[in-house]
Design a protein around this nucleic acid. Structure first.
Lengths: 138, 138
DNA sequence: TGCATAATTGTAATGATTATAAAATAAAAA
DNA sequence: TTTTTATTTTATAATCATTACAATTATGCA
């Protein structure tokens, strides 16, 4: 299947050996752009792969992030979410419905003061508030 | 004492009844601008207040944040840190030494796309990388 | 003083994540 | 194909921050 082939190639490109589980987990994150939690990934894929272990999901996501294939999103207080989008973007969390939105911003205009000679590995803008939909439901 | 008086007044200003524990906890956060964790606050203040309970620290910090007196900083994966600075600023975490730095940025120039009619309650820029000091130690 | 409310405490529960060691699978060598 | 080795996956237990809860203590007011 073409899609699987692409997923597999992308794993290899990032230095990850494409095992069946790894392909399935990455495929899920790419196709479901919902910043899933470990638990969501585990529960959904368990239907397809009954023997799947949660530890495997944890290990795989950690490997993916180390290899810069995906990014963790730390916008929740209690659990980590994952994001496969490669372009620079920020995250908005609605405090009413809980949904997490991606948004673009003009990162080239950002000027940091006091971080000269600091090495940047990861940047994220996190906003919390009420989303448009929830705000219109008052 | 003048300082205590100010702390107490500030709590009242934010709708918080200034009990002894609350004054001590807020005083600690203000005087130690190190984005302390619950555990750090608890252990340090325990020396002065031997009967202090960790639950009280949790409850108090939650109350402070609800009343917008302080902000939680979600830059660590596993634990929450707290910040009493009121001005807008971002956070940089050094992945080598673990230190968290505040930095200023030109937030007036930031333009978000796709968040029209969203209500913002809290904004933070999180950067991870290697700080100047650690970078020079290679 | 006595009562009502708020604040604090100690302990147990929750739940995400990690550690660990065994089992299964894949890859390589003979 | 067999044997050996390395890698991947699994299951279980441990860790640790946070929360729930009920009891206790302190505070404010009639």
């Amino acid at each position: 299947m073409q899609l699987i082939q692409n997923i597999s190639d992308e794993l290899i490109l990032y230095g990850i050996k494409p095992s069946y589980h790894r392909i399935k987990i990455y495929e899920y994150i790419v196709n479901n752009n919902i910043h899933p939690t470990v638990d969501t990934i585990f529960k959904t894929l368990s239907n397809e792969i009954p023997t799947l272990s949660k530890t495997t999901v944890y290990n795989t996501l950690k490997l993916f992030e180390e290899q810069k294939l995906i990014k963790s999103v730390n916008i929740e207080e209690n659990e980590i979410r994952y994001d496969a989008r490669k372009n620079i973007h920020g995250h908005f969390k609605c405090e009413r419905c809980g949904k997490i939105y991606d948004f673009d911003y003009n990162y080239n205009d950002l000027k940091y003061k006091g971080l000269e000679h600091f090495i940047f590995n990861k940047t994220d803008i996190m906003i919390k508030g009420i989303c448009k939909l929830c705000a219109s439901e008052n």
